[in-house]
Design a protein around this nucleic acid. Sequence first.
DNA 1: CGGGTATAGTTGACTACGCAAGCAACTCTA
DNA 2: TAGAGTTGCTTGCGTAGTCAACTATACCCG
Lengths: 147, 147
Amino acid sequence: MRAWARLMRAQATTKRELAAGLQAQHGLSMTAYEALYVLSRSEGGRLKRVELAERLVLTPSGVTRLLEGLEAAGLVERVACDTDLRVTYAQLTDAGVEKLEQASCGHTGSVRSLFEEHLGDDEIEQLAELLGKLPGALDEGEVCPRD
Amino acid sequence: MRAWARLMRAQATTKRELAAGLQAQHGLSMTAYEALYVLSRSEGGRLKRVELAERLVLTPSGVTRLLEGLEAAGLVERVACDTDLRVTYAQLTDAGVEKLEQASCGHTGSVRSLFEEHLGDDEIEQLAELLGKLPGALDEGEVCPRD
DNA sequence: CGGGTATAGTTGACTACGCAAGCAACTCTA
DNA sequence: TAGAGTTGCTTGCGTAGTCAACTATACCCG
């Protein structure tokens, strides 16, 4: 129960703090950043919109809205699937790759320093381990940034 | 970094799941529930709006909006402060107390079973410990439901 | 006392979602 | 090969929350 309350609070505060920085420095929302990141780690920089939704813990409609913005910004583009006319892939553009690279440096730094400010390396590791057991952890395509 | 990603994902998924139940069974949003809870644990069942905002990780305006709803539902009422005309307390009503009691039983049960489904007791304890070190953990007035 | 600054709270405009409904396109079953 | 059901995606509408601007009260210092 304490765990629950703290999970909520820790996420809310850290997210708020980091989102502000990301927005200020690169004009990206957290969700947008994560979308770019997830795409960059995917086969060919593309993903079905449904899969993207799952990875971002969003509903399909949320993805549609999110991608509206990213497409308008030219960071992502739509690519049709030739074996199934229903699906459209979200494809990372060159601009998207670049944007992500610019942003990721500063962002991962912020994340890291935020955590290291409060926890030791082994504790962070332990935390990741425990959180990984909760629902929402990915089975494959695990989000796992370079180091 | 993995810790970060997982913190986001774990919170998003668990929150979504539990919020649905709470809404369906008692017509309360997670935030509303937590507000009632925090108030119930406070001196006299009341709190300055600013303090409430801090505890809920919300902005003052968010609190105003939230309380609009709770006041309309008669679960909370405004009480003026006689030493400082600027402040208005949010005061839990009898109806609010009752509502909270109804909801808390089922809700804490859901939370507990969600966690116990994935983690052992000692792991939960450990998780709470680690999360408590991150920013957002309360120094006083700790959110800490009866067991 | 009077003016500057800080603090509590509200409001309007906006964003980011979720949900329910809908339309295509695919697949399965007879 | 014609439904019937399923899946991928979008759209309209509602809600929760933010930010910026504002009002009103409180405090502080000459």
